[in-house]
Design a protein around this nucleic acid. Structure first.
Length: 936
RNA sequence: GCGGAGUUGCCGGAGCGGUCAAACGGGAUAGGCUUAGGACCUAUUAGCUUAGUGCUUACGCAGGUUCGAAUCCUGCACUCCGCACCA
């Protein structure tokens, strides 16, 4: 493999020359780009590769266009996955061990992974090798990893949080999470065996105070609006209920939901006694928000374990309605209970919601629609309920009998009613999971209210406004991600920023908490500008004053050497703000938005990020990359299989913008060969060729310049796929045509220009082969720091297109006649047609009306002679429009000069004649830009 | 449900009102080169028609605006991404 040798050679040379170590140069424009530090629990894969390549290629391009470029890279170890994985290794969990074995780790190394610290030591080094092998132009002096394992970084994060706290942006509160009671930890999506995407959902419990008693019946619901239509209470006659003491109150709930109260509401809840349902059935309760009392009725269809174990009934609900109708039809069902049947008989729906197109009895409408005849048709009943709830939520308006809620849309009313109930102590917030969740340790998840939690106040109005200000001044690649960002900035609410387990930095003022991983990674790009100069400084000296001095320019006392502090301040001021940060689109809704928020909170406006790049996900051969599909490719694997250059080329040509990118392995293979032949071509053709300059050489020179210009504009817009399209494929095609046209006898100057230019244009993409070529060309410096080619102004000349289309026309004629031609006559259009075209072209700018143009043309006496043909031409050109019109003389000259080329192509004699000078009928068919062809 | 992005030929994908049967890449077919294969080069790759520049049908579906629409507008269908405490 030739590329292996080339890679090693140039990697060493770059390193020896310290080519990518970036230091401030006064007065030189800078470019500071970053790629979010990867989490170091495994080798890097193609996803990392693709996203980071966009920064890497852009950095190289910027270097060639006169920028002082800083590209630094660090590693993220904050959070729990590493600790969890290490624990699993310790427990010798099979799945975890096999994952590591599959990655080729020895038993000895796996043993070492029992210690989380080993991961943090091991993977960054490996990742650095991967980046290096791929030819990344990173300043490695500045690399670091996160957490308190790195005391310098630890100090930085502490400073950051102190700053946020000062500004009241870190606040305390509580919030519900899905929890594993065995591991005593929240169960994130990644650690779930079952139930990905399930979240806690509001499920308010409403208090119905029993009359002549201090007991309160707790009824759970997702539809607090229906409380306005309460008709009665349902209770499971066979259920196990208890009375519990919550604060000063006595609640009646299902026995099995007590734990829920403990987890979510009050950890000190006490069971006072069991209570038989019969004690409750047939009693009256006060209904909140409405001014009447409701009766408790037995229900066989409710479950004491669900929700609170008791529900209130609003007979607009098809479930409730069909049940009560069932009971009313056969009151015998209630004979075991001491009930006032008159009350039962009178129960009927109270209409509180208007839905366009439905009657007042919403429940009945649904029962009729689903043709439900008995409560036993549970499938139908459930569907009817779901549909009604959806309809009400979307279209329902509260009627005039709803007091202050009258006229409100249902979602709004629900929120307000919830608030009001809580405020008047007629309700308590509880949560249910949207679906079943099972922890990796096989324990079913529950909802738990975490107390004492610290939040970043992303919901804060002023802060959100500032974040928008920042976004508004940023450039986004591609721009169409802006909508999504705008939405996210508004949507973000308080973010729980502390954890109890994992690796990380301790919260400075409450050290039982660790700062969570998405929260310690928001402004660390600033740390790149300092780290390489402070890593040997005693971290104890890096107090808040130090960072205030260096990063915020405050003139406060520092413990470090004053000169160093000043230097660092200069360095920070030089590199900041960050010019570009690139990552996958999945980070829009968290990391990238958090970075905006935090920059605006900590830094002055001039240091806010300048631009973001977002890219799609990576597919392999058109299929989403995943371990289970067996198409999971690590960076090192790609490098081994295809080499750095071909991998880089393939990744970047696989897609651009926000679309998913396809890493096509067949393409990667073919690129290896293509790069090899590019190298061979340079060797064979450079500095050889004729001196004489022909029209075709000038065409090629212009073509190259046009490609340079276009490529640069694509690089600037991070459109690397297009850049490759133009600078490689289009340029190769131009070369093919050029060599064909000059019968493989190129002009020396032109061919040199081609080779040099293509090498420069591709250097950001395929740096190794380009360095090698650059050396073969005898250039002394690295192509990596060579200047982007200068171009002269490009003239538009389409005479070459004329030659090409003429050639293609001859081919199509030959295809039809299928004879070996002896002589081919090419007729140039008669003169009058050029005039006609010019007139039409001018008229077309004003009108597309056939008659108007015809009239105008016919004013010219010359055209009258050809009226029939003129008509045809106008008819056609009105539809198609007209390109630039040349002259007969010019077209004649162009074709005449290409005679040698046509001879070579068609192995026949070529005859070029002006139409006027020929007697052939065919000759009259010629038109401007289109010769007539006669094959003999 | 909410928010976003999409739907183009055998496939991937450009195109953003006339120059579009649609760049470029891949595949397929034919020919050249070669001992053969690979690589490379050339032509063809919606249908019909024809010594070429013609007609018809095509750019998710249905309508509309326009002299003219893959491109603009409206409605519909479908696909993908995100919806959090997690990297």
């Amino acid at each position: 493999m030739i590329y292996k040798k080339i890679q090693e050679k140039w990697n060493k040379k770059w390193q020896d020359a310290k080519l990518f170590e970036a230091t401030p140069i006064k007065g030189k424009k800078k470019f500071f780009g970053t790629f979010p530090y990867p989490y170091v629990n495994s080798y890097l894969h193609l996803g990392h590769f693709y996203s980071s390549m966009r920064l890497e290629a852009l950095s190289r391009f910027k270097r060639m266009t006169g920028h002082n470029v800083l590209y630094a890279q660090a590693w993220h170890a904050t959070g729990s996955p590493i600790v969890n994985a290490a624990n699993r290794v310790k427990e010798k969990e099979k799945k975890q061990i096999s994952i590591l074995k599959m990655q080729g780790f020895s038993d000895e190394q796996i043993k070492k992974f029992e210690d989380p610290v080993e991961w943090v030591k091991f993977f960054p080094t490996e990742a650095q090798n991967d980046f290096n092998d791929m030819g990344y132009s990173i300043d490695w002096r500045r690399q670091f990893f996160t957490t308190d394992l790195n005391p310098h970084y630890d100090k930085f994060i502490r400073w950051q949080f102190n700053k946020l706290k000062e500004k009241n942006l870190v606040i305390k509160g509580k919030f519900p999470v899905i929890w594993c009671s065995k591991e005593n930890n929240a169960i994130g999506d990644h650690s779930r065996l079952e139930g990905e995407g399930e979240t806690p959902k509001d499920f308010i419990w409403i208090k119905y105070r029993m009359k002549d008693s201090d007991l309160i019946l707790m009824t759970g619901t997702t539809r607090p609006d229906a409380v306005l239509a309460t008709t009665h209470i349902w209770i499971d006659p066979k259920g196990d209920y208890v009375v519990v003491k919550v604060g000063d109150e006595k609640w009646v709930v299902g026995e099995n939901v007590v734990q829920k109260i403990k987890d979510q509401y009050d950890s000190k809840v006490e069971i006072i006694r069991k209570i038989k349902p019969k004690e409750i059935i047939g009693k009256w309760c006060e209904a909140p928000l409405v001014e009447y009392e409701v009766y408790t009725v037995p229900a066989w269809f409710i479950d004491a374990d669900v929700g609170s174990g008791i529900v209130y009934s609003a007979l607009e609900d098809p479930v409730d309605l069909v049940e009560i109708q069932h009971i009313q039809a056969d009151l015998n069902l209630l004979k075991d209970y001491d009930l006032d049947l008159e009350v039962i008989k009178k129960l009927k729906p109270i209409s509180i919601i208007k839905v366009e197109g439905m009657s007042d009895n919403l429940g009945q409408d649904m029962i009729d629609k689903y043709k439900i005849t008995s409560p036993k048709e549970s499938e139908k009943v459930k569907n009817a309920k779901d549909e009604l709830n959806k309809t009400i939520f979307r279209k329902g308006i509260l009627k005039n009998n709803c007091g202050k809620y009258s006229g409100m849309e249902v979602p709004k009313a629900q929120e307000l009613i919830k608030k009001d109930l809580i405020k008047s102590n007629d309700g308590a917030m509880f949560y249910e999971m949207t679906g079943k969740v099972v922890c990796r340790c096989l324990t079913p998840g529950i909802v738990k209210m975490v107390e004492d939690q610290w939040f970043l106040a992303y919901g804060d109005e002023k802060w959100t406004k500032q974040a928008h200000d920042c976004l508004d001044q940023m450039k986004l690649y591609p721009e169409k991600t802006r909508q999504q960002f705008n939405y996210v900035l508004d949507w973000l609410r308080n973010w729980a920023c502390t954890r109890e387990v994992g690796l990380g930095t301790r919260l400075p003022w409450d050290e039982k908490w660790l700062i969570e991983s998405l929260s310690d990674s928001t402004i660390y790009m600033a740390f790149y500008t300092l780290y390489y100069k402070i890593k040997d400084v005693n971290p104890e000296l890096l107090n808040d004053n130090f960072f205030d001095y260096v990063l915020l320019g405050k003139n406060v006392e520092v413990k470090v050497d004053k000169k160093l502090a000043e230097e660092l301040r200069d360095e920070f001021e030089y590199w900041y703000p960050m010019d570009f940060r690139n990552t996958g689109k999945d980070l829009i809704q968290n990391h990238m938005s958090f970075a905006i928020f935090n920059h605006t909170a900590i830094f002055p406006k001039k240091h806010w990020p300048k631009s973001y790049g977002l890219n799609g996900h990576v597919m392999v051969d058109g299929v989403k990359m995943s371990k289970s599909k067996g198409n999971f490719i690590t960076m090192r694997q790609a490098q081994k299989d295809y080499g750095a250059d071909a991998s880089r080329f393939t990744a970047l040509s696989g897609g651009e913008g926000i679309d998913d990118a396809n890493f096509d392995r067949d393409l990667a293979k073919s690129i290896i060969l293509k790069l090899q032949s590019m190298l061979d071509f340079a060797k064979e053709y450079y500095n050889k060729g004729r001196k004489e300059k022909l029209g075709i050489d000038k065409w090629m020179d212009d073509k190259i310049d046009a490609i340079v210009k276009e490529t640069a504009s694509y690089y600037n817009e991070t459109l690397f796929r297009s850049a490759i399209q133009i600078s490689y494929f289009d340029m190769q095609n131009a070369l093919k045509w050029y060599l064909r046209r000059c019968v493989n006898n190129p002009n020396l100057e032109t061919i040199n220009k081609f080779i040099e230019t293509q090498t420069l244009l591709l250097a950001p993409i395929t740096p190794f082969v380009c360095e090698e070529i650059w050396e073969i060309l005898g250039k002394k410096d690295f192509v990596a720091v060579a200047s982007w080619p200068k171009i002269k102004e490009i003239k538009i000349d389409n005479s070459e297109d004329f030659v090409k289309s003429t050639m293609e026309d001859i081919f199509s004629v030959l295809n039809l006649v299928k004879v070996k031609p002896k002589k081919i006559s090419l007729f140039i259009s008669p003169k009058w047609k050029y005039d006609l075209y010019k007139i039409i072209k001018k008229e077309l700018e004003k009108t597309r009306d056939f008659k108007v143009i015809m009239g105008k043309v016919m004013q010219n006496s010359d055209m009258k002679k050809h009226s029939k043909e003129v008509m045809k031409i106008i008819q056609k050109t009105v539809k198609t429009g007209i390109d630039n019109v040349s002259s007969q003389e010019k077209e004649f000259k162009v074709i005449k000069e290409s005679v040698d080329f046509f001879k070579q192509e068609f192995k026949a004699n070529i005859n070029v004649i002006k139409a006027e000078e020929s007697k052939e009928n065919k000759a009259q068919q010629a038109s401007p830009g289109k010769v007539a062809i006669l094959v003999e």
